[in-house]
Design a protein around this nucleic acid. Structure first.
Lengths: 102, 102
DNA sequence: TTAGTAACTTACTTTATGTAAGTAATTATA
DNA sequence: TATAATTACTTACATAAAGTAAGTTACTAA
């Protein structure tokens, strides 16, 4: 038995099983967020957050928008592809409520 | 804004975002499996598979059973807690079908 | 002028993962 | 009978990923 797993499923897993991506997406379900608020709410280092947001942008899951105000404001939000992950996030929420103790 | 995320959700994410755990659980949804068949179907190294299976056993998600035949047979399967992750896996499947190209 | 915030990047350290070989028990093959 | 193979691992070592802390650029507030 060798490599019977669907490559699309594997790809999805490789994205979602990256450390922090799940929490980033979950946070963005609550609406657009700035770099520093993601950093502090999730507890990820700036170095890795920067990397992850670029990856997620390349995957078309996260969208980065620059608002040229003074001072400039940069917001990260979910694309449709990203929002489509909501049911999955809700399942994790449900599972954690049912099976993990607080 | 600091650490507003539910600790149970975070815990769930920390389990599921470990490399390979998702694929291991997904494979075990198809029924009990032996070490070497997981190793080859997933493509994970024995070193890490061994580590992951122990972690998942400690979390109560996977159960290890020894059948004292000759030669001895060892099977890994999902507990109820593990099977409860099925809807989540199906959502990942659905998402990957809808949003990732083959 | 000094300090502070936002959004990063860079250099360096620690942790995680991969690779390859080794082990112990058993079975199949020449 | 000796050799090779399989299963379920572990160990030692190398590489890749993540964390830590400091630095950068642009602007703003005291």
């Amino acid at each position: 038995m060798d490599k019977s797993i669907c490559p699309r499923f594997e790809k999805a897993m490789s994205i979602l099983s990256q450390r922090w991506t799940g929490l980033i997406i979950y946070q963005l379900l609550g609406g657009p967020q700035r770099f520093c608020s993601l950093e502090s709410s999730i507890g990820v280092s700036g170095r890795v957050l920067s990397e992850r947001l670029k990856d997620l942008e390349n995957e078309g899951i996260v969208k980065r928008e620059v608002f040229p105000e003074t001072p400039v404001r940069i917001e990260y939000s979910l694309t449709d592809k990203g929002v489509a992950l909501e049911p999955l996030m809700r399942d994790i929420e449900k599972w954690s409520q049912s099976w993990l103790q607080a």
